[in-house]
Design a protein around this nucleic acid. Structure first.
Length: 425
RNA sequence: GCGGGCGUAGCCAAGUGGUUAAGGCAGCGGAUUGUGAUUCCGCCAUUCGGGGGUUCAAUUCCCCUCGCUCGCCCCA
């Protein structure tokens, strides 16, 4: 029989790595708590139209990367490829925005049908932030600082913050026209990918990696020059706020980002330690999305952070700084017909009092049980053998500090759970 | 979707066209039926990702396929 395996690009997170995930999640939660964000959880599946309309038909994500299928009711469904569209949909559906601006965060799996490679899986995980109803340039800085501080707090080094402004929808449309006019005249000098994008998504040509295309772009009209006075001033204010916060950023005029809904501020936090997929966190302003999805015009900005990519960076840092699985407070060994039930009761009683207790269920020789006790990393081992069962007294021996010192061993009544709890705490 | 590299046990890994596929780690059992270092002994791949072909004979050569991996595209 063929071995059953997980689907391509869908990876298991094994016990060895879950403490690290939990550590990152806990840290993110704490940062969000301090900044007054509320968590929102949306379904991993939505009607396809949400993404088609929200992200943009011409984008690669919608065009070729979505997991889309018909359910039993013939509805066209899609596994979410990103979080923003769902969050906006949920906010509109439940009238959240009529209660005022929303500072939200979310986390969870996203799905894109792509060829897996370093830092990219088909099911991957994002933590994201969406500020709905905030137009002030300071909100851009606040949102970006949230990502930056979280990453810094996690100990990630060597990050760069890249920043650009895509201008208003009108600026973009005007620039798009200028760019297309310029490039159409030089179409044959473009690489094939860029030629195709000329019709579908011309701004994306700006961050083409093709050397010839980049050379050509050196003489092209720039996005920065196409920004209207208002957009320019706004971008200036964002930069001033970032500077006031001490965030070092680099202007990257070629930073465009693939999703249609971005406007004004666009940013990425990148690392040169990630291989081809350098972006750990990306985001920007999307002032037109809420309206596009049927709501009132609402300014908004957010970002998403790739968990897998972040973990790659953490793994490159100091291993000792990473969270590992916690050791139990106590390991209980027992042997004998009368002892074993007592050990079971003891373990449960101490757990009910808040201790973490691992119970040896092997019924093997004490030597074996002690080896396991030692390897468990527990601070104490509790021993119940025939003698202890007879007298109703459990032997507690320290396994870490004070180990080997008979004076540090304790003997307490098995039934005195509160007393045991106190000594073991 | 396209290109490169790689698939021998849970992990690392040697190996050869020819009887029983090294070794290490981990695991399990025992030496030690009341005590955790170390050490010692034993067990742990009817099989070399899967299928087909060549051959007297294939893990080894050929083809296909699947998977992993790196890159392109794109994104977190």
């Amino acid at each position: 029989m063929e071995k059953l395996q997980s689907l391509r690009g869908m990876v298991d997170l094994l016990p060895a790595s879950t403490p690290l995930w939990q550590g990152v999640e806990a840290s993110a939660r704490e940062h969000f708590r301090r900044a007054g964000l509320a968590e929102i959880r949306t379904p991993v599946m939505e009607v396809t139209e949400l993404f088609a309309r929200g992200i943009g038909e011409a984008t690669d994500v919608v065009g070729k990367e979505m997991y889309t299928f018909l359910d039993r009711g013939e509805r066209r469904c899609t596994l979410r490829p990103e979080g923003t569209a769902s969050v906006v949909r949920a906010a509109l559906q439940h009238g959240l925005l009529s209660q005022g601006p929303q500072r939200l965060w979310y986390g969870g799996p996203m799905f894109r049908y792509e060829r897996p490679q370093a830092g990219r899986q088909r099911q991957f995980h994002q933590i994201g932030v969406e500020f709905l109803g905030f137009a002030d340039p300071r909100s851009d800085a606040e949102v970006i600082a949230l990502a930056w501080d979280l990453l810094a707090d996690l100990g990630v080094r060597g990050l760069a913050l890249e920043l650009n402004s895509l201008g208003s929808a009108e600026d973009r449309a005007r620039y798009r026209q200028e760019l297309v006019t310029f490039l159409e005249a030089r179409r044959d000098q473009l690489d094939p990918d860029s030629q195709a994008r000329l019709a579908t998504n011309p701004l994306r040509i700006l961050d083409s990696k093709d050397a010839g295309t980049q050379a050509l772009l050196a003489g092209a009209p720039t996005l920065a020059a196409a920004l209207g006075a208002e957009s320019r001033e706004r971008f200036q204010l964002v930069q001033e706020s970032l500077t006031a916060l001490g965030l070092p950023f680099q202007l990257n005029p070629r930073l465009v980002r693939g999703l249609d809904y971005y406007s004004h501020t666009a940013f990425e936090i990148t690392s040169d330690q990630l291989g081809a997929q350098a972006t750990v966190c990306g985001g920007g302003r999307y002032d037109s999305l809420v309206e596009q999805l049927g709501g009132a015009p609402t300014a908004a900005i957010g970002w998403a952070l790739g968990m897998e990519r972040l973990l790659v960076l953490l793994a490159q840092g100091d291993p000792a700084a990473l969270p590992t699985a916690p050791a139990p407070d106590l390991y209980v060994v027992s042997r004998g017909e009368r002892a074993e039930p007592l050990a079971l009761v003891l373990a449960r009683g101490l757990r009910q009092r808040g201790l973490s207790v691992e119970l040896d269920l092997s019924a093997s020789a004490f030597t074996k049980q002690f080896k396991r006790a030692d390897r468990s990393g527990a601070r104490w081992v509790a021993v119940i053998g025939e003698g202890e069962a007879e007298s109703g007294v459990v032997l507690l021996r320290p396994l870490r500090e004070g180990t080997g010192d008979p004076a540090r061993e304790l003997r307490l009544a098995v039934k005195d759970l509160d007393g045991l709890r106190l000594r073991l705490g």
